[in-house]
Amino acid sequence: MFSILRSIWLTFIHMFHKRVTVEYPEKKNYLPPRHRGRIVLTRDPDNQERCVGCYLCAVACPVDCISLQATEDENGRRSAEFFRINFSRCILCGYCEEACPTDAIQLIPDFEMAEYNRQNLVYEKEDLLIDGQGKYPGYNFFKHAGVDAGVKAKGEGIDEEKPVDIKKLMP
């Protein structure tokens, strides 16, 4: 009984507390770099597209809003032929970033994407691709991978030995 009255009283005196609301469009909060907002596709240190079209972001996406097609250039380097994110479905959960093995897909601290027309929320690869490395500088997947995709020859990668000469006679 007393606790009920006390709750009422405590609630009542909140009238004189400072309000916590930040009046958003006039005032803007600081967003940390790892805030999960708009999704971008980044480039590697050599300014090439990082995305190798592995489809892991698409399969990780709980709302299935990422769709892409992988393609290969004449060197055998994989990239996305098209890459589409339907932001009208995206829930900014960041699973795609988590799944990305090449640090290509990243969520950035920008959430102001409202549109009057829902169709404008469908972002294609040219809308997503940025000119920098984003949050994770320095990584170039093809220097670590075993394939020769025009970035490094066989055996030239990080932690790789020279290719085996299979016709040598030494054991």
Binding site: D64, N86, E124
Partner: peptide, 16 residues
């Protein structure tokens, strides 16, 4: 079960 991209495959034509 893991079929992906259902809400984006046709989104270039129409978002619905």
């Amino acid at each position: 079960q893991r079929y992906s991209g259902r809400t984006a495959i046709n989104a270039d034509m129409h978002v619905s």
